[in-house]
Amino acid sequence: MDGSAAGAIFFAVLFFGITFGSVSLAIAERKRRSPGGFFLVGFLLGPLGVLAAVVAAPGAPAPPPGMRAVICRRCNARQNIARDQADYECWQCKLVNPSPPTNPARYLT
């Protein structure tokens, strides 16, 4: 195999990797999953990566503006609370939990 054939194969593999990675990324974003992770899976596995993105379960929805999602320590119920709230009562089991610390850098826009 000469250099031009090897170069053509390399660019074909790169083209199909980017194509399948981009399709996986788009599907993952709509399902609120990790777009970068699914791009990598699609890039490396091709059609199997796209299939993995299609069959992946949807992620949890983002909390509304000014809120953050917390999970109860007792019953694992997920709920939204204000960002600066010190403690909260679980809607399901009524346990009063301290709020986990927030990451202030995460909310800077």
Rank of each mutant, 00 (worst) to 15 (best):
P64Y: 04
L51W: 15
R32K: 15
P47D: 03
F39P: 00
M67W: 01
R32T: 10
P47E: 10
L44R: 05
A69H: 04
R73N: 11
M67R: 10
R32F: 14
A69Y: 00
A82L: 15
C75V: 07
G46K: 12
Q85F: 00
P58A: 13
A57K: 15
R78P: 00
C75N: 08
A62L: 13
V41W: 10
P47T: 15
A69N: 07
V41G: 09
A86W: 05
V50D: 08
G42M: 06
S34N: 15
P35I: 00
V70G: 04
G36N: 13
A86D: 14
R68L: 01
C72S: 02
R78F: 05
R32S: 14
A52G: 12
P47R: 12
A77E: 12
G36Y: 07
G42H: 09
L45S: 12
V54M: 14
A82D: 07
L40V: 13
A53W: 11
A77M: 07
R33S: 07
V70A: 03
C72D: 06
A62P: 12
L44G: 14
V50Y: 11
S34I: 04
R78E: 12
Q79P: 08
I81F: 04
L40C: 09
V70I: 11
L48W: 15
V55S: 11
D84R: 11
P58K: 10
Q79R: 08
R78N: 05
Q79V: 01
A82I: 04
R33I: 02
I81A: 00
G49S: 05
R68M: 05
S34P: 03
A52M: 13
G36K: 12
V55W: 11
M67Q: 12
L40Q: 01
D87K: 10
P35K: 08
L40E: 01
R68Q: 01
R32G: 10
A57F: 06
A52V: 03
G42P: 01
F43H: 06
S34C: 10
A86S: 13
G37I: 12
A56W: 04
C72L: 00
P35M: 10
R78C: 05
D87V: 02
R74P: 04
A62G: 02
G59M: 02
P65I: 04
Y88C: 02
P65N: 09
F38K: 08
S34Y: 02
V41T: 12
P64C: 01
G46D: 13
A62I: 01
L51E: 07
V50L: 09
V55G: 03
R32L: 14
V54F: 13
G37W: 01
A60P: 09
Y88A: 01
L45Y: 13
A57E: 15
F43M: 09
Y88M: 08
F39D: 03
D87P: 05
A86L: 14
R74W: 09
V50A: 11
V55C: 03
F43W: 10
I71R: 15
F39G: 01
G59R: 09
G49Q: 04
Q79A: 06
R74E: 13
S34M: 10
L40I: 14
A82F: 06
L48H: 06
F38E: 06
N76H: 15
F43C: 08
